Amino acid sequence: MSEVTDFTAWTSADAASVIAVPRPEDDKYSRGVLGIRTGSDRYPGAAVLGVEAALRTGVGMVRYVGPARPSDLVLQRRPEAVTAPGRVQAWLIGSGMDADHREDAPLIAALDEGVPSVLDGGALDLVRHATSPVVLTPHFRELARLLDTDPGEVALAPASWARRASDELGATVLLKGTTTYVAGPGIALSVTGAPAWLATAGAGDALGGVLGALLATRSTDAAADEQLPARLAATAALIHGHAAARASAGGPLTILDLCAQLPSVVADLVRQ
């Protein structure tokens, strides 16, 4: 497949225009509640990183619903997280899950609630169960599996495959990589600038948390504007990359280092 070239570079000014800034009259519910179904007994850290990133990006509440071990670790790290079920404005599902060892029923039930969703990792194949706007966040190998094609082909033409996946699956697709490509209905965006040091375990878990938070804070708007999920996805990638650059300062970073930089990155953007 030949590479497409119609992707528009997403800028800091673009990102600033879609970030929801709290108003004096807002409370924790009107600021957005993100539901998170991620992690597993085998990969509990994915839950911790997603919750951490979401809370530091800006959201009124995070409801984490998952196995006992990840739940305990989430509460140890972020005691403000809520582990009781309840109403949410968006879902983040799949990070740190194995598609062959998951319980499908609660995930499908979440996707049937009619709120925007982020599908990552072990839940990408559930896209056809979504009843509202959904954003997929695969890397090239995951996208190749989802589309039953050669990973090498996706690696050679990532923009084209992101566009094709969006069209075939009826979803917004954020294809992670050195350049991140975001394709949605009638929209194609690209994000660059993240340091190479970001190629480390847990980076995608944090990106999911950032995007989930942005979707939860703009949930009603995302349901009404079919292109907004793509703009929010590109904004998540930009915030994630800028936070990584600050955490790295030219050297190695950990994902918790990245998460610690998220509030200052968001603050700098909204000042615009």
Rank of each mutant, 00 (worst) to 15 (best):
D205T: 09
R218W: 06
T192M: 06
A234H: 03
L211T: 02
S219C: 14
D225H: 04
T178W: 14
T178G: 15
A243G: 00
R231H: 03
V182P: 02
L198A: 14
L215C: 06
G202S: 03
R231C: 07
L232S: 12
G250H: 01
I187P: 02
V210R: 05
L232G: 15
G251W: 08
A188V: 08
S219H: 06
G250A: 00
L228T: 12
H240Q: 13
G209L: 02
T178P: 14
G184K: 01
G184F: 05
A196E: 15
A224T: 12
E226I: 14
A243F: 05
R246S: 14
A237Q: 09
Q227I: 08
A196Y: 09
D225A: 03
D225T: 06
D205Y: 03
Y181W: 14
G250P: 01
G209A: 02
G204V: 14
A245P: 07
G186N: 04
R231E: 06
L232H: 11
A201S: 13
A213L: 09
A249H: 02
H242S: 15
E226Y: 10
T220W: 11
R246F: 10
A188H: 13
A216T: 12
G193V: 03
H242F: 14
A183L: 02
A230G: 10
D225P: 05
A213E: 11
A188L: 11
L189W: 04
D221K: 10
A249P: 00
D221T: 11
D221F: 06
E226P: 15
A249S: 11
R231I: 04
D225Y: 02
L207W: 07
E226A: 15
S190M: 12
L198N: 07
A247F: 06
A216D: 08
V191M: 07
A237I: 13
G241A: 10
A243H: 00
